[in-house]
Amino acid sequence: MTHDIELTVNGVAHSVSVEPRKTLLSVLRDQLHMTGTKEGCSTGDCGACTVILDGKTVTSCLVLGVEADGSDVTTIEGIATCEELHPVQEAIVEKGGVQCGFCTAGIIVSSVALLNENPKPTPDQIRRGLAGNLCRCTGYTKVIEAVTDAAKKIKKPARRKVSKRK
């Protein structure tokens, strides 16, 4: 038994037939083949599967696919444009805020959502904004530094091409 749902992911409309027990995370990864969003725990504790659902961050492992019917979803694949990294993505690379990279998609999605709501957060506000995203590699110091740096740059149109690197 499946349900037909419609949802918009990163600006593109999709019709998907989903089993009622499938999570939004599973719909994204297994049915739409967008594997940038990661599964770290499946209990909503690690934040690796964070996506923006109708403007708010959610752990997509705790949202059923059928609940997302009619929703607008932004995943890590929708943060950069084809040509340009988002300033948060750029800063995470340049400031060393990525190590193993498995939590990184969730951290970036949460950071982008935070900066959308609060463009000039203090380091403490960034720490609270990322409290739902576990990272085991970095100890967070360089992640906070990167998001702080991105917040400063976001005012300026200083975006860089995806292919370019230093």
């Binding site: 990294l85 995470i92 690379v93 990184t104 970036i108 690197r165």
Partner: peptide
């Protein structure tokens, strides 16, 4: 910065 960083962050 990590050379594969742009791939990871996207």
């Amino acid at each position: 910065g990590r050379l594969n960083g742009p791939d990871i962050v996207t």
